[in-house]
């Protein structure tokens, strides 16, 4: 069975436009127009969502988050790529080559 990640640190990612996003008590919630689902991104997920409003490499996202949060690079890289893979699975982001 393959354990290959869907995204890697050198990938560029960007939001898929057209979703309705709102702040709710410091957390970001979003309605996907495409699939009609509601999502809660949480606080840090909301920060990541703002960072990917324009195309950006994932390792740049990690560096920016490390400026604001108490976290090791290894932990941040692992958890951010996992989170972005979830977003990709739901078609909420696009990777370089898709745009």
């Amino acid at each position: 069975m393959s354990t290959k990640k869907m995204v890697s640190l050198k990938d560029k990612v960007q939001q898929v436009k057209g979703n309705l996003v709102s702040d709710m008590g410091g957390e970001k919630v979003m309605l996907s127009i495409e699939n009609g689902k509601y999502y809660n991104l949480g606080e840090i997920g909301g920060d990541i969502w703002e960072l990917i409003s324009e195309p950006i490499e994932i390792d740049q996202i990690v560096s920016k988050l490390m400026d604001h949060y108490e976290v090791t690079r290894e932990e941040c890289e692992t958890e951010v790529t996992s989170f972005l893979a979830q977003l990709k699975k739901e078609n909420l982001i696009q990777l370089k080559g898709d745009f």
């Binding site: 919630v29 689902k37 509601y38 999502y39 809660n40 991104l41 949480g42 606080e43 840090i44 997920g45 990541i48 400026d67 604001h68 949060y69 108490e70 976290v71 932990e75 941040c76 958890e79 951010v80 989170f83 979830q86 977003l87 739901e90």
Partner: peptide, 20 residues
């Protein structure tokens, strides 16, 4: 001062629509 890190997660919310 840096903020406390928590693993980012994507939560899918189940919204029930009531037909009236």
């Amino acid at each position: 001062m840096k903020k406390h890190w928590q693993k980012p997660t994507l939560e899918v919310l189940e919204i029930t629509m009531t037909m009236a």
